[in-house]
Design a binder for these strands. Sequence first.
DNA 1: ACTGAAATGTCAAGGCC
DNA 2: GGCCTTGACATTTCAGT
Lengths: 152, 152
Amino acid sequence: MLLDEIDKKLLEYLQADSKKTTKELSNKLNLSVTAVYERVKKLEREAVINNYVALLNKEKIDKNFVVFCHVKLVQHTQDYVIKFEKEVANLNEVLECYHISGDYDYLLKVLVKDMAAYREFMVKKLTTINHIGSTQSMFVINEVKHTTTINF
Amino acid sequence: MLLDEIDKKLLEYLQADSKKTTKELSNKLNLSVTAVYERVKKLEREAVINNYVALLNKEKIDKNFVVFCHVKLVQHTQDYVIKFEKEVANLNEVLECYHISGDYDYLLKVLVKDMAAYREFMVKKLTTINHIGSTQSMFVINEVKHTTTINF
DNA sequence: ACTGAAATGTCAAGGCC
DNA sequence: GGCCTTGACATTTCAGT
């Protein structure tokens, strides 16, 4: 799907605040309510917009310990890879998992309450997955920037 | 703020789909529309819910190259640190930046169109920031999991 | 892409445990 | 304090043009 400048503006606004009404958007864009409505519907239909979500404040719900964890597998046969990916995706504490280039195979973003919970996660969940060779944890000292907004 | 089981359910639903109406939520929770409405307002007021956003499909907008980039500073005096963090936060391509423990100082999540764009980003933007000692790029081969939903 | 109108949703007021 | 019902108002959604 080809996006014109109005679509891009629209996506910019909706990425910042998806609760904006079509009326507000129509004012900002100098369009009618229906025109905006139909553009948004099209962006949803064409899956340019994946979904609408509420973002929570980690501190307020006592999950304020973020760790990036490198994982290396002992073997890289397809079965092991598929099994590992499936099992990791099922862990609630793992918000993100990437297969990456470099010294390690995977990079995981893990969110837990505190160091004790992370230890628990490592011992009882992550390292019980078979065929993990080694792991290396990098603890987040400070979150300098964190946005879900993609700029054009 | 203390969250009861109903609040947690509510947050679970809104994290998955923030467009759910209070009516739909009230049905799922066996509550009245107003009860749900007031709970949601309270969660917003107390900043448990930070904001509502539209999440886009990276592929559809031609930004499908994700790179995690480690950065080490040459010095760690406060001026340099503050300046680096400020300049990095201003780069559109940098979606996330974390100060982390370990061999490197920072971990950046960078989103661009392709390898050529990444090269451009490194040469013209990132490495023009002063006092960067070294960098190491890890390219994302596959995104195994990526969620913004925090489980309780 | 616009106007207009029905369906649906939001949100405040007042009252009940 | 949290829940409910009611009703006014705003928004969404969809014809028809």
